[in-house]
């Protein structure tokens, strides 16, 4: 009531409350948007049905780790079937489906619900919005590209009788796991963000993301079988699954099997790294451009 009395000089007092607290500014809105988007990626704060798919997909991506740890727990010999260098082979399809599920949720929802003007009317700038969303998606993807491997690393160490010896033998794997996991997460986040931000319709972007991530790998496989040569080399660099595999193998200093598409291409693995960086940069730029140009 006292607020109401203080509101002076108004023709008609609508009774709006004034905000007298601390204004937290651009930085705080950025951090809240990041945190809110990350929670939204897993359906936290939404109804139960929105949580089912992300959680199921993350569990699916952890399945190889759980299987390996189960084997390690039961079998007496030190049997490492799933190596960190080839973990991506097991989770790539799962990762793509997670991207297709989450990217439209993060990048199209505000366009569909027409909530973007509310964000842009605040201290938050358009690029801040894009960065916060991209960071949230990349962080969410780490739950697939990094977390299972960290669990596997720790679990493998604990399963053996000699923890210190294990750590001594395999310590180099830890930075490799982290670096490759982060690169793959950012790479896939930028690709799916570039697609997911183009249309407000969830179904369209989901389908487009699957086409770009999964169907291109079918193309690579057929090209590898029928054409080969320079065509295959170019295709391999452009197909997200193949390029990502190449970078991971390069980071782990591992070879590729001859019968895989990457092996058939005969490409030097390090070339995949600049290819991945270029695609990441272009797709990130497309995402920024979309939100800069969008009329809200």
């Amino acid at each position: 009531m006292s607020q109401r009395a203080e509101a002076a000089g108004s023709i008609y007092d609508l009774g709006y409350r004034h905000y007298d607290g601390v204004r937290l500014g651009r930085r705080q809105s950025f951090l809240s948007l990041y945190a809110y988007s990350l929670r939204g990626a897993f359906g936290l704060g939404r109804r139960t049905t929105s949580k089912v798919i992300p959680v199921a997909v993350v569990l699916l991506a952890a399945a190889p780790t759980l299987a390996q740890l189960a084997i390690a727990a039961i079998s007496p010999v030190d049997a490492r079937i799933i190596e960190p260098a080839n973990y991506f082979d097991f989770v790539q399809v799962t990762l793509a489906i997670f991207c297709a599920a989450v990217a439209p949720e993060l990048f199209a929802r505000d366009q569909r619900m027409r909530t973007l003007p509310l964000y842009f009317a605040r201290g938050l700038r358009r690029d801040d919005y894009t960065i916060a969303k991209l960071a949230a998606l990349a962080t969410a993807l780490l739950f697939i590209t990094l977390l299972p491997q960290l669990v596997l690393f720790i679990g493998n160490g604990l399963a053996g009788s000699d923890l210190a010896g294990y750590a001594k033998d395999h310590w180099m794997e830890l930075p490799q796991v982290v670096v490759s996991g982060v690169i793959v997460a950012v790479f896939f986040a930028c690709i799916s963000a570039a697609i997911g931000s183009q249309t407000p319709r969830r179904a369209y972007s989901t389908v487009a993301i699957i086409a770009v991530l999964i169907l291109t790998s079918v193309v690579a496989a057929v090209i590898a079988d029928t054409v080969g040569g320079v065509t295959l080399k170019i295709v391999v660099l452009l197909v997200p699954f193949e390029a990502a595999t190449g970078v991971i193998r390069w980071i782990f200093n591992a070879s590729v099997a001859r019968e895989t598409n990457l092996g058939k291409s005969g490409l030097d693995l390090w070339i995949c790294f600049p290819a991945v960086l270029t695609v990441t940069a272009i797709t990130a730029w497309l995402t920024f451009r979309r939100f800069r140009r969008l009329d809200v």
């Binding site: 798919i53 399809v93 599920a101 699957i210």
Partner: peptide, 12 residues
Amino acid sequence: HALLVGLLYVFI
């Protein structure tokens, strides 16, 4: 979420 469930069925 039929599209996503369908994707899981087809591709996984």
